[in-house]
């Protein structure tokens, strides 16, 4: 479904020329690998109230990897509402939540179209589920709220020619960021929530090397590892100790049930850390 109304960029990937250093490091791909502890998430920058025209807004940034070419994640979220529903819509006793997630055309290695594709829709659905558990919906009958997230930079390694085989791993990181930033924007808009919900990702990864064993890391960068075996993205309410959304993907040995628990547990850990950033940011904003 081509978008004929606009002048689209070339469908294929275009890359700026990369000049090798004098030192000449042939193994760019290997780089350093993961330089964080397995249970430490990347440093996060979060700021609310960035879009004056919206009722609430927030901007989130995960800093990139130490490797050059990995740009990190940049998200901008605006919340419009609560506003009255149009007359045509049926009566709703609680707030009607709609979440839109859109990649900027330049956000990823593969150029995105201007229309939302299935993966973006998928992200939107996940986000909606995650937030629905947090919002006290009964307080706003007959009203709607629109949550719009623009992914400015999609947390992808632009330099690796090797694709990880599945974009889902990237999407998981993006989703966790989306949940956190949307929560901040909702708080900025003054919409009542039971708690601040934050997203966290944990993954079972296999590092490069002959005898490396799979290990669980939080906030994985797929290009840091040889292979990602499985991952889960968790939206978690810390004070209630509730998970509002859980997305699990990967092929784990079916026999080991504890592994699933471990992954979710680590996802929750990541989410708690993200939540702390969120709470601090909101505290800064209100003080």
């Amino acid at each position: 479904m081509a978008d004929r109304r606009r002048i689209n960029g070339p469908p294929g990937a275009t890359m700026a020329p990369v000049f090798e250093d004098d030192a000449g490091q042939p193994e760019i791909k290997n780089g350093k690998g993961r330089d964080r502890a397995p249970n430490i998430i990347r440093k996060t920058f979060l700021k609310t109230g960035v879009t004056p025209s919206a009722s609430g807004s927030a901007y989130l940034e995960f800093e990139g990897s130490s490797k050059s070419g990995v740009s990190g994640l940049k998200l901008s979220c605006t919340v419009h509402g609560p506003r009255s529903l149009p007359r045509s819509s049926p009566f709703s006793p609680h707030i009607v939540l709609s979440a839109h997630v859109k990649y900027a055309p330049f956000a990823t290695k593969q150029r995105r179209g201007y229309l939302r594709d299935p993966s973006e829709r998928d992200l939107g659905t996940h986000l909606e589920t995650a937030l629905r558990g947090a919002i006290i919906a009964d307080r706003w009958p007959k009203s709607g709220v629109d949550i719009i997230i623009s992914i400015i930079e999609g947390d992808q390694d632009r330099e690796t020619s090797k694709s990880q085989g599945d974009e889902t791993w990237d999407m998981m990181n993006v989703l966790s960021g989306c949940i956190t930033v949307a929560s901040a924007a909702l708080a900025d808009a003054g919409i009542d929530c039971v708690d601040t919900v934050a997203g966290g990702v944990a993954a079972l990864v296999q590092d490069a090397g002959e005898d490396s064993t799979p290990r669980i890391v939080v906030d994985p960068i797929p290009s840091d590892h040889e292979k990602v075996l499985g991952a889960c993205c968790v939206a978690y309410l810390p004070t209630r100790d509730e998970v509002t959304n859980l997305w699990f993907k990967g092929d784990l040995p079916a026999a080991d049930a504890g592994l699933y628990t471990q992954l979710v547990e680590n996802g929750i850990q990541a989410s708690r850390t993200a939540n702390r950033v969120l709470v601090e940011c909101l505290g800064e904003a209100t003080s």
Binding site: T44, I152, I216, Q262, E280
Partner: peptide, 26 residues
């Protein structure tokens, strides 16, 4: 699976808020 003791030690240790400086873009 997790054999390395660091993995478990870390959370018990200091866990500072991962507040990053805004990027050039931000």
């Amino acid at each position: 699976i997790t054999k390395e003791p660091e993995v478990v030690e870390e959370p018990a240790q200091a866990r500072p808020v991962k507040k990053a400086q805004p990027s050039a873009f931000a």
